[in-house]
Design a protein around this nucleic acid. Structure first.
Length: 191
DNA sequence: CGTTTTTGACCCGCGC
DNA sequence: GCGCGGGTCAAAAACG
């Protein structure tokens, strides 16, 4: 009965009630930014306002409705906009190869994906092997700015703020980058 | 062989 | 009511 669109619609609606949008502006030539999760591309669309196509990714984890959309920054082709939509219904899965987590890649302009929740930020999650992979990503790509939105709102509007790069606001935004897209909270609704 | 990527089509919401 | 833009799904192809 309910078509795929129906299901999608429902999911969309329900998600909207508990959607988290995080927009990352990462300085990278390739959009192949690894964040510790395994994503499967499920769509690509050319935006009207952007000469570059936008890629849609979805977490391969079963039951995980986390999505991610990657597009090249239209004002700065050297940057890529990574927008995380929704939360992962699971922790960092050990799907990534065990890198040498003994490395201290947190330095310089590299943003440490430390938890900024304010409470359990000392969680040993970062000790996970997957975390190492994330470190690598951050080491190879410099996150210029991050916008965190924990509700259904105009994420695009936030992106507009990124235009303030170089005006000084960037630093403020970078501060937000301390917040990782993970560690939010598992959704007891689905799983 | 299994999984992922690719591309087109379809659907929905919004604006005019 | 129609058109546009954006987002998702689905089937086939490519890749490991």
């Amino acid at each position: 009965m309910a078509s795929v669109a129906d299901t999608m619609k429902m999911n969309n609606k329900r998600n909207k009630n508990n959607l988290s949008k995080i927009t990352y502006l990462t300085e990278s030539e390739s959009e192949n930014l690894e964040d510790g999760y395994k994503w499967r591309k499920y769509g690509k669309k050319s935006l009207k306002k952007s000469p570059f196509p936008r890629s849609y990714y979805r977490c391969t984890a079963i039951g995980c409705n986390a999505k991610k959309r990657v597009e090249r920054y239209m004002d700065d082709p050297t940057h890529v906009l990574t927008t995380y939509v929704g939360l992962h219904a699971h922790d960092l899965p050990p799907i990534l190869p065990p890198p040498s987590r003994s490395f201290n890649l947190y330095n310089n302009s590299t943003v440490s994906p430390k938890l900024g929740k304010g409470s359990d930020e000392q969680k040993p999650i970062l000790s996970d092997a997957s975390a190492g992979a994330r470190e690598r990503m951050y080491a190879n790509n410099t996150i210029t700015s991050v916008n965190v939105r924990t509700d259904s709102d105009s994420c695009v509007n936030d992106v507009g703020s990124i235009e303030n790069i170089g005006t000084g606001l960037l630093e403020d935004i970078v501060n937000l980058s301390s917040i990782a897209p993970h560690y939010q909270h598992h959704q007891p609704t689905s799983l």
